[in-house]
């Protein structure tokens, strides 16, 4: 059987890749995909823990995370469409309305 730490390491790597994507990409859609990637990395560790602790709670959490992700994607994409309508761009470095 593959040890737990392998799964966790894989989860950490995928999470970090997602984080890098969020940090360096300018296209807001790709940033958003990176966030999905991070969520999935966390899901993987949930399922792995569930398996190695002989408990189904982890899978329940993944189920809930998926539902939240679905709602989040729906609202998030709607926001992106709104921004695109107003600013005609999807580049985050051109959007700094909140600049102090």
């Amino acid at each position: 059987m593959v040890p737990l730490s392998y799964y966790l390491l894989l989860s950490a790597i995928l999470f970090s890749i997602g984080a890098v994507g969020v940090l360096i990409r300018r296209n807001v859609l790709i940033m958003f995909m990176s966030i999905e990637l991070m969520l999935n990395a966390v899901n993987l560790s949930f399922v792995a823990f569930s398996r190695f602790l002989d408990s189904l709670e982890g899978q329940v959490f993944v189920f809930l995370v998926m539902a939240v992700a679905a709602a989040e994607v729906a609202v998030g994409l709607a926001i992106i469409i709104c921004i695109f309508r107003n600013k005609a761009t999807v580049n985050v470095d051109e959007i700094n309305l909140m600049k102090g």
Binding site: V22, V92, D93, L97, K99, G100
Partner: peptide, 18 residues
């Protein structure tokens, strides 16, 4: 001085979180 922290770029905030 302090307002410089608030760049308005989403990525700055995410960086700070990380």
């Amino acid at each position: 001085i302090g307002r410089r922290v608030q760049t308005g770029y989403v990525q700055t905030y995410i960086l700070l979180i990380i």
